[in-house]
């Protein structure tokens, strides 16, 4: 590990998008290098972690996979908070999943409540690019949408064929890292962190023992 300005080894990435676009598959392909043809709806949210080297820096990516189906969204989305990057995923063969991107993005910004919503790093992934013959959303259309949203980076990927997945996530990590060095305080009390700050006294001032 080389020395950075301030090391924060954890990058939190959230994958959002309609049900069936392949959020879980993308994550599994990237983290476990595995793909299954069987569809299983995700219930609630869960994360996987992966250690990656970005420009000589070792970072841990914590990738949160979410439920796309509304009926499985009855649990909260507190995990949006403190995200370093939000991955919006849609299915290039399903135009509705593309149309719904706006609502996913809005919903994320409202719930995550980042300090600078206009410049929060989003990345757009168009999954299932291997099914070219069924394509319903052109690259052009996706790119135009990205430009209208402050130039969001756009990747077309295939979780099934493992096309572009690695490079897309590399870019995601880079984006997240760039933002992280911009303002390092945006992480609200991340519980894994233990702060040893002599100025911040605990509730019991000066006292050690209660008896």
């Amino acid at each position: 590990m080389s020395s950075g300005p301030r090391k924060k080894a954890l990058l939190k990435v959230i994958i959002l998008g309609d049900s069936g676009v392949g959020k879980t598959s993308l994550m599994n392909q990237y983290v476990n290098k595995r793909f299954s043809n069987q569809y299983k709806a995700t219930i609630g949210a869960d994360f996987l972690t992966k250690d990656v080297m970005i420009d000589d820096r070792l970072v841990t990516m914590q990738i949160w996979d979410t439920a796309g189906q509304e009926r499985f969204q009855s649990l909260g989305v507190a995990f949006y908070r403190g995200a370093d990057c939000c991955v919006l995923a849609y299915d290039v063969t399903n135009s509705t999943s593309f149309k719904n991107l706006d609502s996913w993005r809005d919903e994320f910004l409202i719930q995550a409540n980042p300090r600078d919503p206009d410049h929060f790093p989003f990345v757009l992934l168009g999954n299932k690019m291997d099914l070219e013959q069924n394509r319903a959303v052109s690259s052009k259309r996706a790119q135009t949408w990205c430009q209208s949203k402050n130039n969001i980076p756009y990747f077309e990927v295939s979780a099934k064929e493992a096309l572009n997945v690695e490079s897309a996530f590399q870019a995601i990590a880079r984006d997240a890292l760039a933002r992280e060095s911009q303002d390092s305080q945006d992480f609200p009390d991340f519980p894994d962190q233990i702060r040893l700050d002599p100025n911040q006294n605990n509730r019991q001032q000066g006292g050690g023992c209660n008896c």
Binding site: G44, F47, W64, A78, R81, Q111, N113
Partner: peptide, 23 residues
Amino acid sequence: ETCRGNGFYCELCATDAGRNQIL
């Protein structure tokens, strides 16, 4: 961490302290 991630933040809160309380 997963279960905590599935918590809620009150959207209607006026104060910062309230907004940052996990429910």
